[in-house]
Simulated assay, not measured.
Amino acid sequence: MAQEAWKRKELTVGQVAERSGVAVSALHFYERQGLITSRRTAGNQRRYARDTLRRIAFIKVSQRVGIPLARIRTALESLPDERTPTVEDWARLSRGWRSELDARIEQLERLRNDLSDCIGCGCLSLERCVLSNPYDRLSEEGPGPRRLMVAGLEDRVEE
């Protein structure tokens, strides 16, 4: 008698995708990035341990709060025997990420507050453009939209 799917010790890639809400292509990507692992059957099909679902939940939550995949991978690698994160692991890791997230929040608040000074024209050389030209550093390179100009192109356009 075949075991019910929920009782199986291993899951197929389709089952993991369905249960986690993550596309199969994303699972393959996570595996290439070393975030999750699978074993291959004799027919070269991927099989995932059931605890992979918890690792994927950890990855998704970490991404949602803005943690880059490289930092998530480092966090997962720091766990003994690459086991599934526990509540205690999450508490420890999230404490370590807190200052990084606080710095990003401060940066985003500054950008939001400075956005009203930007007229959004795209010239990228406004004297007061704190978003794309802080302290008018590009004025030292000459007049005009410095970031949009390709060396020598402005001369050819006038010809």
Rank of each mutant, 00 (worst) to 15 (best):
D136M: 00
R98E: 14
H28S: 13
L101K: 12
R46I: 02
L108W: 09
A91S: 11
G43C: 06
R19K: 14
L111W: 01
A23S: 09
L153T: 04
S125W: 00
R8F: 01
T41I: 05
R156T: 07
R147K: 10
R83V: 13
D114N: 12
C121A: 02
E140A: 12
E4H: 09
D117T: 00
R54H: 12
M149R: 09
Q45M: 12
L79C: 09
R19W: 09
Q45G: 09
G34S: 02
C123H: 00
L126F: 01
E88A: 14
G14M: 07
R128Q: 04
R46H: 05
M1G: 12
I59C: 01
L76A: 08
R104C: 10
D89M: 03
Q63C: 13
E159C: 03
R95I: 11
L53P: 03
V13W: 05
S20P: 06
P145S: 14
C123M: 02
S94A: 13
E127S: 02
F29E: 11
G43F: 00
A91V: 11
R71V: 04
N133P: 11
G152L: 08
T12P: 09
G43S: 15
A75S: 15
S99G: 10
I56G: 03
L153D: 09
R47Q: 15
V16W: 08
L153I: 06
P80W: 04
D81S: 11
E158W: 07
E127I: 01
L108I: 11
A151N: 05
R92M: 08
R156I: 07
E4W: 05
T41M: 02
A49D: 14
V22Y: 03
G120R: 07
L35N: 03
S38N: 04
V65A: 10
P85I: 08
A57C: 03
R147A: 02
Q3P: 03
H28D: 08
A17C: 08
L115S: 07
P134F: 02
L138D: 00
E77N: 15
V150G: 09
L111I: 11
R92E: 13
E158G: 02
E158K: 11
S139W: 00
G142R: 05
G43T: 15
P80A: 13
N44F: 10
L108S: 13
E159T: 11
L124F: 01
V150Q: 11
P134M: 05
F29I: 06
E158V: 10
Y30D: 06
M1C: 06
S139T: 00
L27T: 04
A26T: 15
D102S: 09
R64H: 14
K7H: 05
R46E: 03
A23L: 10
I105F: 00
Q33G: 01
Q15K: 06
G21I: 07
L35Q: 03
G120V: 08
E100P: 03
V13P: 05
R92S: 12
R92N: 10
I36W: 02
R112A: 06
N133A: 06
V61Q: 05
G14Y: 03
R110N: 01
P80K: 10
Q45R: 15
R83C: 10
T37S: 14
P68D: 07
R137C: 06
G142N: 05
